[in-house]
Design a protein around this nucleic acid. Structure first.
Lengths: 175, 175
DNA sequence: CGCATGTGAGACATCACTGTCTCATCAGAT
DNA sequence: ATCTGATGAGACAGTGATGTCTCACATGCG
């Protein structure tokens, strides 16, 4: 239910509670029984999104082994939740909520720690700060999520495209 | 004036006309004198954003010379307008407007043409489709714009970070 | 079958926001 | 000093959305 709500709000942040309820397949009264207002709904979506991101990171076992492989696992695990990430990324008014912001920052820090680990291992370049690489990771995941929603990118290609772009960039490597 | 309005709407898509007017430094009555309604305002912002993107591409002279250098010029020219791009990117309800969508698609196509040219020149990898690279370009510009707004990235570093990430990715190149 | 729980639909009062209007004020030009 | 055009402030009517409530219905369980 919440996934449909997040999908609609990502596309149209001004959607009414009635429209959200319809997108979620329930009535407005029922939506209101579950969430006492728009703010409560948005917060619940934010919390779910953060939880999903953390689950994806848990599944990717970020602390284990080669940082490159860990990043690949992370993108694979995160891509199915790209819709939520896109929502979290665009719904910046979430940042008014200190608790959600803390959760978001904690998730960001886990990704940043992976990039730093890779830099220490000598596999990631050090001229790009981990803070920025984390930002780029999020932007590409969310952007890819949008592109899949719009049909410009095939869902099955998405993780590969994100990973390859994030790791290797657009430049063709000389042999 | 429109820049402040776009900045607020990027952060908080549900902002009221009164809040938008205050952010723009004018009264609600004056805002209404200039734009007969929220839809008219959003459309005007969209048109301005598309115009700015096209001006950035004109300035970057995308068709000239080496595609890598052209991309660098493009990012340099587009970064100052990252706020508008972020707005265009997140305000997906713009896509309900066929005219704006056509303008947006045309802008996208210019960037995609650059990536294709680079692929034909043999400087960009061909396993990543130009459609995706265009998406990645937009996502990184908008994401960097957000990060600058939030103070996580220094404005002066932004173009460099975007360009280096888009071209070379996070992997450290072996000597 | 009866009961408990949850839901959908719709009515209705309330509220936030919008659109319009008027009037006073201000800035710039003459 | 006067005029013109633009603006800000606030009042007010209208509108869409929200929050609450009631009732009928559906589902699952014992």
């Amino acid at each position: 239910m919440l996934r449909e709500a997040a999908a609609l709000l990502t596309r149209r942040a001004t959607a009414s509670m009635d429209e959200i309820a319809k997108a979620a397949g329930i009535s407005r009264a029922t939506l209101h029984r579950h969430f006492p207002g728009r703010d409560a709904l948005v917060r619940a979506l934010g919390e779910l999104g953060i939880r999903r991101m953390n689950e994806a990171m848990d599944a990717a076992r970020l602390e284990e082994g080669d940082a490159v492989r860990a990043l690949r696992r992370l993108v694979d695990a995160a891509m199915p939740e790209a819709g939520f990430l896109a929502f979290l990324y665009s719904e910046n008014q979430l940042y008014d909520d200190a608790e959600l912001k803390a959760g978001w920052d904690a998730s960001d820090e886990r990704v940043a720690a992976l990039f730093r680990r890779g830099q220490e291992q000598g596999v990631f370049r050090i001229d790009l700060p981990a803070v920025w690489l984390t930002e780029a990771y999020t932007a590409l995941i969310a952007g890819c999520g949008w592109a899949v929603e719009d049909g410009r990118i095939a869902r099955r290609d998405s993780a590969h495209l994100v990973t390859e772009t994030l790791l290797g960039g657009a430049l063709r490597r000389q042999s």
